[in-house]
Simulated scan of single mutants.
Amino acid sequence: MNMDFWRAVFKEQIEAVKPRDVWRLTMDQSLDFHNVASPWRKSLQEHAHGSFTCSRCYHSWSSHHVVILFHMHLERYEKQGSVRMRTFRQRCYQCSSDKYEEPQFSEEDVIHSVECLIFSIRKKCYGEHLDDSRLFEVVHENRGPHKHEHCEACHLGIHNAHYRWPRGSGHHREPQRPAYLPASLQESKASSTTYSSLATLKYEAFANHADASSCWECCASFIFIAFVIGAFLVYWNKNKYL
């Protein structure tokens, strides 16, 4: 991992939104998810993208479930901020090596993760009320289930500590923590949310009549009422012309 590139991207993005403060980013593989020294704040990215290479069999794989932990702190009076980051590793699932391999990130991966980090800093360190609808975790489909038995973060109880996913679905589930999406995709997200809400209402309406006998009674009552109304209209029309 090239930390110089991480620092360069972080410096550029944080200066764009907080030009009066000086921030620095460092790597710290000893960070503890469960213990955060006050007044530091933590932020966890559970769906970063990265790649791995086994040092034993040289098998390579990519993952959309790379976990990155950040601890962040801002000294308001000194106008200085610090971020420490830790990346969690994965083991090779082909040769079943016991060694956890470090993730490698492309430039695009780093830029995306830093965007999410900046968002967390603005909310947790500056108290900004940002619109969370602009962010959500992108869970990539058709990439295969997450092999949690080979994931260091899962082994430490971090990756799966905040949610439960359906059986047989790996970590492909409805996201809880968002990651950045371009504004051009927000309309499609909003429309899909609306559709999902309508589908839920339809399901709930059906569920209220899930009992078969209740449904039959309702249908029979409706048919009887329609028959009575129809008969009345026929009788009324015949007498009208007598």
Rank of each mutant, 00 (worst) to 15 (best):
H47M: 06
H47T: 12
A48M: 02
A48T: 07
H49D: 09
H49N: 12
S51F: 08
F52D: 05
F52R: 03
F52Q: 06
F52H: 09
T53C: 12
T53L: 12
T53A: 10
S55A: 08
S55P: 05
S55V: 04
R56H: 09
R56I: 10
Y58V: 03
H59S: 04
H59D: 10
S60M: 11
W61I: 13
S62T: 05
S63H: 07
H64G: 05
H64P: 01
H64V: 04
V66W: 13
V66K: 13
I68Q: 09
H71K: 15
H73F: 09
L74Q: 06
L74F: 05
Y77L: 08
Y77C: 05
E78I: 07
E78G: 13
E78K: 11
G81T: 02
G81K: 09
S82E: 03
R84M: 02
R84S: 00
M85R: 00
M85I: 00
R86V: 02
Q90T: 10
Q90Y: 11
R91E: 09
R91G: 01
C92M: 15
Y93L: 01
Y93F: 05
Y93P: 00
C95D: 15
S97C: 14
S97D: 11
Y100M: 02
Y100L: 01
Y100F: 09
E101K: 01
E102P: 00
F105E: 03
S106G: 08
S106H: 03
E107H: 13
E108D: 11
D109Y: 05
V110G: 06
I111C: 07
H112G: 08
S113E: 10
E115D: 06
E115Q: 13
C116Y: 02
C116N: 11
F119E: 00
S120C: 11
S120T: 11
C125Q: 14
Y126E: 05
Y126T: 03
G127I: 04
G127L: 07
E128Q: 12
E128A: 05
H129G: 02
L130N: 12
S133E: 03
S133Q: 02
S133Y: 08
L135F: 15
L135T: 11
E137Y: 14
V138T: 04
V138Y: 02
V139S: 01
E141Q: 05
E141S: 08
N142R: 13
R143D: 07
G144L: 06
H146F: 06
H148Q: 11
E149R: 14
H150T: 09
H150N: 12
C151K: 05
E152H: 04
E152D: 01
A153Y: 06
H155W: 09
L156K: 12
G157H: 02
I158H: 00
H159Y: 03
H159I: 03
A161S: 09
H162G: 06
R164V: 10
R164D: 05
R164H: 06
W165G: 01
S169C: 07
S169D: 07
G170H: 05
H171L: 02
H171W: 00
H172Q: 13
R173I: 14
P175L: 08
P175H: 11
Q176R: 15
Q176D: 14
Q176V: 14
R177W: 06
A179D: 13
A179W: 07
L181I: 14
L181H: 15
L181R: 15
P182M: 10
P182V: 07
S184M: 15
S184A: 15
S184P: 13
Q186P: 08
E187H: 08
S188E: 15
